[in-house]
């Protein structure tokens, strides 16, 4: 596996992912419209209902729109991660996965290339969303535009790795609706994206609070939130890194014909 070969393969996989994204106008549009709807409609409507007290990294009261901004950036990463999962299942159904997995490169590298390409796409989408949010008057400190970059990449990789892992289990495109109901929605709503977690404790919803704290998506949101204000949330960094390793290693294991979950499926003779 020469460096030139690995770079070529990465460039080919990334270019294909990018091309597909650009050609799917609905996907391009929804990646921008979905978080903007939350920001311009939901957050605007609820800003007087959801009071947000001063919690780190904020040093003063912030509007509800400002509070949900990192959560909505995380939502883009979450949807893109699941989109990667959908893309893997689609490629498997269309036969492209066979072509990819029979390329003369280690399987982990091929999966990593897919994952990284998806993360680059989701990071670009977040910046597109932040730009429109800024035009609407919702933003964070100027330096935050730079300091969130590593947080977005790390969060995108972790949620993309979760998508890869799910694609091992999702055998057909039709089953993707289940992913929406049982993965995306619980992860999003049971996180600190829309409200600070102390609100759950205040409501005496202790089990939900515990689940929300354990939720990997909460850690992504907090990682982005702190990074936007030039701070590092060490717990979130460690948690996101840990989940990334677990999800990616399990996905690679799942795609390994020697040991993985794929072997349970019997091919046509």
């Amino acid at each position: 596996m020469s460096p030139s070969h690995t770079l070529q393969a990465f460039a080919a996989i990334s270019a294909r992912e990018f091309e597909r994204f650009v050609h799917q106008r609905g996907r391009l549009l929804s990646s921008l419209v979905r978080p903007l709807l939350w920001l311009a409609v939901f957050a605007a409507g609820f800003q007087n209902v959801f009071g947000v007290s001063i919690v780190p990294p904020y040093q003063t009261y912030v509007t509800y729109q400002v509070y949900v901004l990192p959560g909505l950036a995380g939502m883009i990463l979450l949807f893109q991660g699941m989109q990667s999962s959908l893309s893997m299942v689609y490629d498997r159904e269309m036969g492209m996965m066979r072509l990819l997995l029979t390329a003369p490169l280690p399987r982990w590298y091929l999966l990593l290339a897919k994952l990284t390409a998806g993360t680059l796409l989701s990071t670009a989408q977040v910046y597109g969303f932040l730009l429109v949010a800024w035009l609407l008057g919702v933003s964070f400190p100027a330096l935050g535009w730079l300091t969130i970059l590593p947080a977005l990449v790390l969060g995108g990789l972790m949620l993309g790795a979760l998508g890869l892992l799910l694609s091992v289990y999702i055998r057909q495109l039709e089953n993707f609706a289940g992913t929406m109901n049982f993965v995306i929605f619980p992860m999003f709503f049971m996180s600190s994206a829309l409200y600070p977690l102390w609100r759950l404790q205040e409501s005496a919803a202790e089990p939900v609070y515990q689940l929300a704290t354990f939720n990997p998506f909460t850690q992504v949101v907090e990682l982005i939130r702190f990074a936007a204000y030039g701070q590092v949330n060490e717990v979130a960094v460690a948690a996101v890194l840990g989940w990334l390793v677990i999800f990616f290693a399990t996905a690679v294991w799942g795609y390994d014909p020697q040991r993985g979950l794929m072997r349970r499926v019997r091919p046509a003779a």
Partner: peptide, 20 residues
């Protein structure tokens, strides 16, 4: 196992790059 949405050339280039 080819990408029907891409051109013949794009499919071949993709494969060539996967093979370094």
């Amino acid at each position: 196992t080819a990408d029907r949405d891409r051109s013949v050339l794009a499919n071949l280039r993709f494969h060539a790059r996967l093979h370094g």
